[in-house]
């Protein structure tokens, strides 16, 4: 077992032990969804109309959870140094951290979203596209968050700043993702937003590890 898989498994195990695993993110997602009717009323048709947008916004907020500690804890305890000593490039190390984060937030969110979509009276033909859009899009959100986590790694209270840095950069992902679901709900083809969403994730897959690693290197100099 090489260092990269070791780091990934360790992060997954840690997430489960400290209770920051998949369940809690899902509970947060569920709470957001159950708060919506209280805020806008019980009008099913109205809820159904805004459901795609709201589910995507909730996913965005749920992804932000825990990002501020994503790299910080390991940086403080010198874990990152240990993994660097193993000869693994920093870019791959941060990628493993991001993957672990996505496996316990983005992935369960995507799988649970159709159920929550049911509660929000989303059109039946939009259920599968909803899960699909989140599966394709949430990695981009996590990766953008990774950059923010690396930039704020040395800050004691970086959580709010991280959100301020990261959220404007998530605009394209949000647009493509929410549009995909909305088009599907209207029974229209949604290939274009799906391609664009996939493009976003692929682009972030390149940009995020490189910039996050650069930020970490500069922060420790």
């Amino acid at each position: 077992m090489n260092a990269w898989t070791a780091l990934l498994l360790r992060d997954l195990r840690l997430a489960r032990r400290v209770g920051a695993g998949a369940e809690l993110g899902l509970v947060f997602f569920l709470i957001l969804v159950s708060l919506l009717p209280f805020a806008i009323g019980a009008d099913q048709r109205f809820i159904s109309r805004i459901a795609p947008a709201f589910l995507w916004l909730s996913a965005l907020l749920a992804t932000l959870l825990g990002l501020d500690r994503l790299l910080q804890a390991d940086e403080e305890e010198g874990v990152l140094d240990q993994f660097l000593l193993s000869g693994t490039p920093l870019e791959l190390i941060v990628l493993a951290k991001a993957l672990a984060h996505w496996l316990v937030t983005g992935l369960p969110l995507s799988l649970a979203a159709p159920l929550l979509g049911l509660m929000l009276a989303i059109e039946p033909q939009a259920m599968a596209p909803l899960a699909l859009s989140l599966l394709i899009g949430t990695p981009a959100l996590t990766l953008i968050g990774l950059i923010g986590a690396a930039l704020t790694v040395s800050l004691k209270r970086g959580g709010l700043l991280l959100s301020v840095l990261v959220l404007p950069l998530t605009v394209p992902t949000l647009i493509f993702g929410a549009t995909l679901v909305k088009e599907a709900a209207l029974g229209r083809p949604y290939t274009t937003p799906m391609m664009l969403l996939g493009g976003m994730t692929l682009l972030m897959l390149v940009i995020a590890p490189v910039s996050a690693a650069a930020a970490l290197r500069h922060a420790r100099q």
Binding site: I147, L165, L169, F176, H218, A219
Partner: peptide, 24 residues
């Protein structure tokens, strides 16, 4: 340190701005 962190953020923003413009 601030200068380098901001420089990286500026570059990341520069890559994203055309995409944001396009998506909007």
């Amino acid at each position: 340190r601030a200068a380098r962190a901001v420089a990286i953020l500026t570059l990341v923003g520069a890559v994203n701005l055309p995409i944001i413009k396009f998506s909007v």
